[in-house]
């Protein structure tokens, strides 16, 4: 397996404060990886660093063997990095189709956009049914699918999903994750950033746990599901509080 995205000892922050403190992680070709972590652990900052919205203060960032450090954020889409942001952020007054076509705005995807649109609509038949409806009038689950579909329109090599299950009914979480596994079958690498460890680990091949700006644990999805740290902090196996998990991490 070849590495697609590699972060090596990345540090980043805002103003004077450090959020990422030596973050290293890797996503291989065709792999589904999840990044778990508590509120404020730096998950969203990690996606922002990968997209180029936040500049790392130290460390290295390579994509498909090429350093990303000098690539501006708008060009990273052309490299094949697409993000489906937290909170969906679809354009509410545009139709579903228009939203999707905007996803193919970059050079990389523009020429084939009609073909890509057909592909995306076959992955998300629900979006095909609603193609001419305004995005703002769709339910939360449909909007989440639209956000993922829009990211796919950019013909990504790496698709990043920030909190795709957020605020969705249990059934819709399943629908969204079904779409994620369909996408993975297309051969696209996926990095899922999630609070909801249970569903993310079910969909992922491997996972990382982010705490205090660096990786506190990593391993295959099955290993992580079995790990005490993950169980206590994310799966709710016991009544353990964050403090006790923090203590454990230090020892």
């Amino acid at each position: 397996m070849t590495a697609l995205l590699t972060l090596k000892d990345v540090c980043a922050g805002y103003g004077g404060s450090v959020v990422l403190d030596g973050l290293s992680l890797q996503v291989n070709e065709g792999e589904v990886v999840c990044l778990l972590g508590a509120n404020g652990a730096g998950k969203t900052t990690a996606t922002r660093v990968i997209c180029g919205l936040v500049k790392p203060t130290a460390g290295d960032l390579t994509f498909a063997g090429k350093s990303l450090l000098r690539v501006p954020s708008y060009d990273r889409v052309n490299e094949g990095i697409c993000l489906s942001p937290e909170g969906r952020q679809v354009f509410p007054d545009m139709t579903v189709r228009e939203n999707l076509l905007l996803g193919a705005f970059c050079k990389r995807a523009k020429a084939d956009r009609a073909k890509t649109l057909d592909e995306v609509l076959s992955v998300f038949p629900r979006l095909a049914e609603r193609a001419l409806q305004k995005a703002g009038l769709m339910s939360g689950g449909e909007q989440q699918m639209l956000a993922i579909g829009r990211a796919l329109m950019g013909k990504p090599r790496l698709l990043m999903l920030d909190e795709p299950s957020l605020g969705l009914a249990p059934k819709l979480v399943m629908d969204v994750y079904e779409a994620v596994s369909k996408t993975a079958k297309l051969g696209i690498s996926i990095l899922i950033v999630e609070q909801n460890a249970e569903v993310a680990l079910a969909a992922a091949d491997r996972g990382y746990v982010l705490a205090d700006g660096h990786i506190a644990a990593s391993g295959s999805a099955a290993e992580l599901r079995g790990s005490k740290l993950v169980q206590e902090a994310f799966l709710g196996a016991s009544q353990a509080k964050r403090n006790s998990t923090r203590d454990r991490r230090r020892t």
């Binding site: 103003g15 959020v19 969203t44």
Partner: peptide
């Protein structure tokens, strides 16, 4: 906005 201190900082 990238330069704005965010909460990750505060926690």
């Amino acid at each position: 906005r990238g330069k704005q201190p965010r909460s990750e900082a505060a926690s």
